[in-house]
Structure formats: C-alpha cells, structure tokens
Amino acid sequence: MVDIFLRDYDVYKLDDSEDHREVKLGYEIFMNTAQYIGPENGDPIKAYSGNNLACTNCHLAAGTKPYSGPLIGVIKRFPQYRGREDKIGTIEERINGCMERSMNGRMMPETAPEMTALISYLKWLGRYAPDDGKIEGQGFLEITIPERAVDLEKGAQIFTLNCVVCHTAEGKGMKKPVGPGYLYPPLWGDDSYNNGAGMTRVITAAQFIKGNMPFGVQYTNPTLSDEEAYDVAGYINQQSRPVKPHLEKDFPDLKKKPVSTPYPPYVDDFPIEQHQLGPFQPIMAFYKTKFNMEKTK
C-alpha cells in the first residue's frame, strides 16, 4: 500500500484562513451529517438527509481508510461516467446520489453552503493524490464470490457473533449520547439506507464488510472469510429498510445493471431472489455469453 494513507489529514492543524474554515466545515458535515443536514438539524429547509447517518458511517475514518470507499483523490476522478444514470456526472451529482439513497433524503442544491464545504473538504483530501485521482486502496476489498446462494441462517449466526455488540440484535445501531447521529449506524429499519443504495447489493456489502468489519479490522488482517462476509451481507440486506421511489428509472441501459442489484427490471430472466442472494455466477455467465460483458458485482 502506498503511503498516501499515511499523510496528514488532520483538519484541526489547519489555520483559520477562509479557505481552511470551509475545509473544516466540510469535515464537520462529513463527520456529523445529521447535525447539519439531517431531519433533526433544526432547519427543515436544510434537512437534505432523510436519516441520521453520517458520511463517515460508510467512508470510514473521515474518508481516509483504505478499502472503505476512501475519498482521497475522488474529486480528481470526476466528471465520471455512471451506469446508474447512463451519463457523465459531476461530483456534486454523485454526492446527491448518496443524499437520495444512502441518506434516504433529497438532493442538495449544488450552490448550498453545505455542498460547497463538502467539495472543499474533498479537494483538500485529494491534494496528495495523483492527477487522475486513482490510488491503491480505493473502492472496496475484492472477494472470491462463493458459487452458491447466500445462506441466511449462517448469516444470522455470523451477525450475532460479530455485529450485535455495535449494531444491536435488531440492527438499530447505537446512537450518540448527545445530539443526532450514531456511534455505530443502523443496518436496517427506518433510519438506515434505503433499498436503492449501493450497499444493498450483496457483493458490494460483502466487500465492504470483509475489509472493515467488525469495526477496527484492517484489510491486511480480516476477521471474516469471504464466505462469512457474503452470508452476513445477504442477511443484513434481507431486512426491512426504506423504499426509494422510481427505482425502475435506474440504469437506462439495463445491460449495465450490476448482477446483485436487488430490484428489477432486468434484461435477463433470472428471478429477483437470485439477483438478491445468488448464486451470481450463472447470471454473470449469461451476460458474458449474450453481451460479451464481464460482470464482477
């Protein structure tokens, strides 16, 4: 792993210049999202997030942990093509994708002070990244996908053994002692990500879990095996969560829809249960044969 993750990302060492104040505000919004733009922030106009999660609940360590969707360099990878919208999108549009899905909320105006501050923080995080923004450790940790369906019974057992201490047996997480937000986020229920979020894809969730969970795990020394991460990801994502409207509009080119996307429509004839729980290899083989497309998630 290159030393870009060992650089100094401590915003509290910044001076009080106007630019650095905006960076620090972006960091605060990233870490305490519910306090600034959540449903209980005190100003309904600024309630862009529909739940009390924080950006750092998925992008761990303020977006600086390898293989947890780190945001170091991300600003330099935009504009970027996104299959979900089938167009070249801006970083602001990508943030709003999180607002509408992971945060179960609504779009934030691109000129809103909170959006400007988040962009400033991302630019500051990327100051050491190469010009193309690509770094080793971006995204999530690859796994070998088991050639079987998720075992929900085993997933429940793994959850009980490894996850309930932080997320509780009901998956409701652990709230901060003061103010809105969570020490450990809910994994399902009304205050969690909705069914349009990327984390509802079993393969994506398993990759995140393998490299980062239980909390504190490093990708170099994971606790769970690929199969355990796969089963517990499937168990978590079979639980009830908010429903995003108009999911049928996602992926205008349905061929580009990830095989583990848990909601239709699809361009194939595999049942929705198989898209949610696998096995995924037959679906991947179909896309390779029919469209010469290599699918990995």
Score class of each variant (00 low, 15 high):
residue 1 M to D: 06
residue 2 V to S: 13
residue 3 D to H: 08
residue 4 I to K: 01
residue 4 I to A: 00
residue 5 F to K: 03
residue 7 R to V: 00
residue 13 K to Y: 01
residue 16 D to T: 03
residue 19 D to H: 12
residue 20 H to Q: 04
residue 21 R to S: 08
residue 23 V to P: 00
residue 26 G to R: 08
residue 29 I to E: 02
residue 31 M to E: 14
residue 32 N to V: 05
residue 35 Q to Y: 12
residue 35 Q to S: 14
residue 38 G to C: 06
residue 38 G to K: 05
residue 44 P to V: 11
residue 47 A to N: 08
residue 53 L to E: 05
residue 58 C to I: 02
residue 59 H to T: 07
residue 61 A to R: 15
residue 63 G to P: 04
residue 64 T to I: 09
residue 70 P to G: 08
residue 71 L to T: 13
residue 77 R to D: 06
residue 81 Y to T: 01
residue 81 Y to K: 01
residue 83 G to I: 00
residue 86 D to T: 00
residue 87 K to Y: 00
residue 87 K to E: 02
residue 89 G to Q: 14
residue 93 E to M: 06
residue 99 M to G: 02
residue 102 S to T: 08
residue 103 M to K: 08
residue 108 M to R: 01
residue 109 P to E: 07
residue 113 P to Q: 03
residue 114 E to N: 01
residue 117 A to E: 01
residue 122 L to A: 05
residue 123 K to E: 11
residue 127 R to V: 01
residue 128 Y to R: 10
residue 129 A to N: 02
residue 135 I to N: 01
residue 141 L to K: 13
residue 142 E to A: 13
residue 148 R to D: 09
residue 152 L to Q: 12
residue 153 E to F: 07
residue 156 A to T: 11
residue 156 A to K: 15
residue 157 Q to L: 14
residue 159 F to A: 05
residue 161 L to R: 15
residue 161 L to D: 15
residue 162 N to K: 14
residue 164 V to M: 13
residue 167 H to G: 00
residue 167 H to V: 02
residue 170 E to A: 14
residue 171 G to P: 04
residue 175 K to T: 10
residue 178 V to H: 12
residue 182 Y to C: 06
residue 186 P to T: 04
residue 187 L to C: 04
residue 188 W to H: 10
residue 188 W to I: 10
residue 189 G to P: 03
residue 196 G to V: 03
residue 197 A to L: 09
residue 198 G to H: 12
residue 198 G to D: 07
residue 199 M to G: 04
residue 205 A to G: 08
residue 206 A to E: 05
residue 207 Q to K: 14
residue 210 K to I: 11
residue 213 M to F: 10
residue 216 G to L: 01
residue 216 G to A: 02
residue 217 V to H: 13
residue 221 N to P: 04
residue 221 N to E: 12
residue 224 L to Q: 04
residue 224 L to N: 02
residue 225 S to R: 13
residue 231 D to T: 13
residue 237 N to E: 12
residue 239 Q to P: 03
residue 241 R to Q: 05
residue 242 P to N: 09
residue 243 V to H: 15
residue 246 H to C: 04
residue 247 L to S: 01
residue 248 E to S: 10
residue 253 D to T: 00
residue 255 K to M: 02
residue 257 K to G: 07
residue 258 P to D: 06
residue 259 V to L: 10
residue 261 T to K: 07
residue 262 P to A: 08
residue 262 P to G: 03
residue 263 Y to K: 13
residue 265 P to H: 05
residue 268 D to S: 09
residue 271 P to F: 09
residue 281 Q to R: 15
residue 283 I to E: 06
residue 286 F to L: 10
residue 287 Y to H: 07
residue 289 T to Y: 15
residue 291 F to V: 03
residue 297 K to I: 15
